[in-house]
Design a protein around this nucleic acid. Sequence first.
DNA 1: GTCTTGACTTCGG
DNA 2: GCCGAAGCCAAGA
Length: 106
Amino acid sequence: MHFYERVYAVVEQIPPGRVTTYGLIADFLALGSARMVGWALNQSHKSGLDIPAHRVVNRKGELSGRAHFPGEGVMQQRLEAENIEITDHRVKDFEKLLWIPSEHLL
DNA sequence: GTCTTGACTTCGG
DNA sequence: GCCGAAGCCAAGA
């Protein structure tokens, strides 16, 4: 079990309409570095798995990973499809929609 | 083997 | 509140 497989497991648990951050996932899995989460998700498309990576944003609620999606604006569209409002590449009411792994997973 | 590069975060100024 | 620097750690060159 590589660390990125655990990242996928957590990301898959994020409920639709909610978001979480790289740092929270890194902390919950004790990865020691939030960058590893982003790196893991970068590999996710390669794994052929369907990971809802659009629900993972940086600590400010910005869609920092949008550039790595297949098309332009794909990340935002997927979030809007879950009733999450995006303004200027940021999640509206980010703090309210924030889903904290440690409060829901063990 | 070292060096660079990040879908990041925190701290000092 | 906004920079710049540093810390972080796994790939890829």
